[in-house]
């Protein structure tokens, strides 16, 4: 009789333990997804800020039409990108177009003193940081999630419910991997 009770108690404990492990996995998975959407929000925000920048700079930089057009083009390419790989390449292109632009700006002291321009510049550089931090957070979450999937005992639950590992988001590496594929024919 006592043996039966012990058996039931162990069983109940086991079930509770399994439920909490499962919930923990779901929570981590949601955090990974949330981390990804935060990256996306910041990338979109950067796209939205660029027309403002171009608009503010246009009046001052009449002779830099090429630089400004370069940014606008890079932006539309980045907005049209579909897969993660494509996105990484396009966003990198946009970043380099913008750093080129900010180098040119050094020659225009009037523009540099314009409050509107300074405001947009602060917003843009902050958005760059936010992208970096969102990526950092996303990769952290992916690391926790993947660790949990691999480690005992949560790996058993993960196997039972088909949790698969999440992918890291490496902007630099992905871009470098993609670049040699460009076809010049």
């Amino acid at each position: 009789m006592i043996g039966l009770w012990i058996f039931i108690a162990v069983l109940v404990l086991l079930v509770f333990n399994m439920i909490s492990i499962y919930n923990g996995l779901i929570r981590l998975k949601n955090q990974v997804e949330n981390g990804w959407s935060q990256i996306d929000v910041q990338l979109k925000r950067r796209h939205d800020l660029i027309p403002n920048l171009v608009e503010t700079a246009k009046g001052y930089m009449k002779h830099e039409r090429g630089t400004l057009e370069g940014i606008t083009e890079a932006r539309s390419r980045a907005m049209g990108a579909g897969s993660v790989g494509e996105k990484a390449v396009a966003e990198k292109g946009l970043s380099s177009a913008m750093s080129k632009f900010f180098l040119v700006v050094e020659n225009y002291p009037d523009l540099k003193a314009n409050q509107n321009f300074l405001a947009v510049q602060e917003e843009l550089s902050s958005t760059e940081n936010k992208i970096a931090f969102a990526r950092q957070n996303y990769n952290d979450q992916v690391l926790f999630f993947n660790n949990k999937i691999e480690m005992f005992p949560s790996n058993i639950m993960a196997g039972m419910f088909n949790f698969s590992k999440a992918e890291f988001f490496e902007l630099e590496d992905a871009a470098e991997k993609e670049v040699p594929k460009v076809d010049f024919s």
Binding site: Q42, N129, Q136
Partner: peptide, 16 residues
């Protein structure tokens, strides 16, 4: 102080 707000938001994102 927009910069302060931006910096706080950056850290909010980093710290989740």
């Amino acid at each position: 102080h927009p910069q302060l707000f931006n910096v706080v938001e950056e850290m909010k994102i980093a710290a989740n």
